[in-house]
Simulated assay, not measured.
Amino acid sequence: MKLTGNNGVLGLSLILLFNLIRITYQTTTYSCNATASCGCSTNSATLSRIVGGEAATPATWGWAVSLNIANTYLCGGSIISASWVITAAHCVNGQTASSITIYAGSNSRWTGTQSRVVSKIIVHPSYNSDTYVDDVALLQLKTPLDMTDRYVSQICLPSVDSTTLSTTEWPAANTTVVAVGWGTLSEGGSLPTNLQQVTLQTISRQDSTCSPLINDWHVQLCAGIFGGGKDTCQGDSGGPLMMFNSNKQWVLVGLTSNGIGCAEAGYPGIYTRVATFVSWINTNTNSGNSTITTTRSTTTTKPTITTTRFTTTTKPTTTTSRSTTTTKPTTTTTRPTTTTKPTTTTARSTTTTKPTTTTTRPTTITKPTSTTSRSTTTIKSTTTTRH
């Protein structure tokens, strides 16, 4: 079709406007292997490609648990067997086991179809509270969980050979991963009612947005979205970063650890690289009466998924609002970024061009003014951070 003169300009304008209005929303459904011993919940996981996170549906992430620590701090964790939960070391370091209660089988924070008191805390012996290297801990439950509960399941641990772990990144850069948690919807912001989920991409350790933030790439990895807008935040610490593998199982690839602000452009989140610690996990949990399940998943290709597209032709005013959210990574619909540029930096960064204080992921509900990390207090707003 050939357009000339004013009619041509008008025609092109109308076409552009029409394309802006016809925003296509894509949702991806991950249907897991229902016969697998790990990495599959009762319901399939469906995630949208909108900017920011979104509420998860019930019985989708059956291994995700919320931790009540000393009736003050909130962290996340993952069920790896009936008797063991894995979380971040900075969430539980210095705490007594009896002060920690885990809640399983619910999307609501600090409620569940089952709750258990912790009987033993195992913090990685090399955990460094300044750099968040080896930020991993195991929690043994006083009483095993009932794994026949349809709302409760266990996640798979990765099985990756030592050569791969020592020479290359696993999972590979640009792998699609999903993080879930009950953390704040913005830095120092409000807590959601229900469990949130967000799709991210792993970022190469050599990328300029990642390399200044990590101290040891063998045990830490970066994940986020280029341009910002999607991230974990305070209260998400210890929660799972997951990959859907070619066997149609969810595999635990990371633990939410720390980061600069939340969803800031150029500042991805930092996660503990779980594959490096599988041997340590097995050594410390084999004395229990539960079985830890690993799955060999060396593929970094995209999983087989079911995709549904919905096209809307709503009014331009609605479309304009969506377009603004998309083009400005510092503003999102459900997980807005912090309203100010971050004035803090991670403790892992040794560059002299960055600020000297640390933001990681336990903090208070109020705006942190010093070292924070991605766990948070939900009942005592005046409680100071533990770091």
Results as ranks from 00 to 15, higher is better:
residue 3 L to I: 12
residue 10 L to Y: 10
residue 16 L to V: 13
residue 17 L to V: 06
residue 24 T to S: 06
residue 27 T to P: 07
residue 34 A to K: 15
residue 34 A to C: 04
residue 35 T to F: 04
residue 38 C to L: 09
residue 39 G to M: 08
residue 49 R to F: 13
residue 63 W to P: 11
residue 70 A to Q: 13
residue 76 G to C: 08
residue 77 G to P: 03
residue 79 I to M: 06
residue 82 A to Y: 10
residue 83 S to R: 15
residue 85 V to C: 01
residue 94 G to C: 01
residue 97 A to V: 11
residue 98 S to K: 11
residue 98 S to P: 04
residue 103 Y to G: 08
residue 103 Y to P: 04
residue 105 G to E: 03
residue 109 R to T: 09
residue 110 W to M: 09
residue 113 T to R: 13
residue 114 Q to T: 01
residue 115 S to A: 09
residue 116 R to E: 07
residue 132 Y to W: 07
residue 134 D to N: 15
residue 146 D to S: 15
residue 154 Q to C: 04
residue 156 C to A: 04
residue 159 S to M: 03
residue 167 T to F: 01
residue 173 A to V: 01
residue 186 S to M: 10
residue 204 S to W: 06
residue 209 T to A: 14
residue 224 G to F: 01
residue 230 K to A: 14
residue 233 C to S: 10
residue 233 C to A: 07
residue 249 Q to T: 09
residue 255 L to I: 15
residue 256 T to Q: 10
residue 256 T to S: 07
residue 258 N to T: 10
residue 266 G to A: 13
residue 276 T to F: 07
residue 277 F to D: 03
residue 290 S to G: 12
residue 293 T to N: 00
residue 300 T to F: 06
residue 300 T to V: 14
residue 312 T to L: 08
residue 315 K to S: 14
residue 322 R to K: 09
residue 325 T to I: 11
residue 329 P to M: 02
residue 338 T to G: 14
residue 339 T to Q: 03
residue 356 T to A: 11
residue 357 T to S: 10
residue 369 T to I: 02
residue 375 S to C: 14
residue 377 T to A: 02
residue 378 T to S: 10
residue 378 T to F: 00
residue 383 T to M: 06
residue 386 R to W: 11
